[in-house]
Design a protein around this nucleic acid. Sequence first.
DNA 1: CTGCTAGCGTTGACATCTCAACACTAAGAA
DNA 2: TTCTTAGTGTTGAGATGTCAACGCTAGCAG
Lengths: 151, 151
Amino acid sequence: MSTPNGGATAPDEAATDAACEPVDFWSAFKRAHEVVRARVIADTAEAAGLSEPDLTILANLDKAGGSLRQSELAASLGWDRTRISHQLTRMGKRGLVTRERAGGVTVALTDSGRTAITAVHPGLDTAVRRHLTDKLSAQEIETLISVFRRL
Amino acid sequence: MSTPNGGATAPDEAATDAACEPVDFWSAFKRAHEVVRARVIADTAEAAGLSEPDLTILANLDKAGGSLRQSELAASLGWDRTRISHQLTRMGKRGLVTRERAGGVTVALTDSGRTAITAVHPGLDTAVRRHLTDKLSAQEIETLISVFRRL
DNA sequence: CTGCTAGCGTTGACATCTCAACACTAAGAA
DNA sequence: TTCTTAGTGTTGAGATGTCAACGCTAGCAG
């Protein structure tokens, strides 16, 4: 073997092999993210007839009390101006949000939008627990938080 | 105004606070994935005039010796038939791959495609190290591998 | 008033991803 | 042979994301 794995004979089969190649570790990271994402979305947004970006925006508006400047919304999500504009246009056509000019542009939940996010919100927490945190030990969560913060 | 923020005004300071809410933990996961992804792609695919899906497909073909059945390629990536078909059509138009009917469809690297992936491959490993594994301790990597496998 | 600059948002073009519907091939049953 | 079924690919439409270019508004200098 070109990569020494320490003295152990072979206590942990494939795990160490996968760890040797950074690229494989990265692939595992991507895979894990994708799997959790698909399951959470299936249990929340899709179940309510919303897409993932719909849910993201509605949740942020709700957390902010129901309305935000478009630029603040974009900043809080780390989204591009163009991206938020297109997404809000689509959501406006479906009656989830309204936009009004007031210096900048203020985005607000409609009744329909508020109803949708209120219905989904508790399920979101449940879904994340079921598909992610319930499968991890407290110590693993601590480790991951530390890692995520560093990246 | 209508939303009580507890005592502190800072949104994300205390690790323990973020850990308490599964949804925040999930947000941190998504953010970490996105940050690493953007940096790795910027250092590899974009630097070579390729997109992320281009790179993914070229790397898999290269690892398999230069050609694969379209269905095997899709299976090894966990991609949809439709997705691989559209992507290969676009890549074919740019001269990166060819497709030939032989029972199923066999996808092969062109000279141009092989040149591209050969040029990028070493940089990919370096980029993943720089933006991910170099920032983690050996023990953290062990923990993450264990977690990723479980999900 | 005119012109400049900067911030903010929109638009159009294109790439990507997903879904539903269709086409082709191979294998087996009638 | 003919029909059926399963496996495999393609196509078109719609949703999403990114880039470049443009338009609008506000503030500020001339």
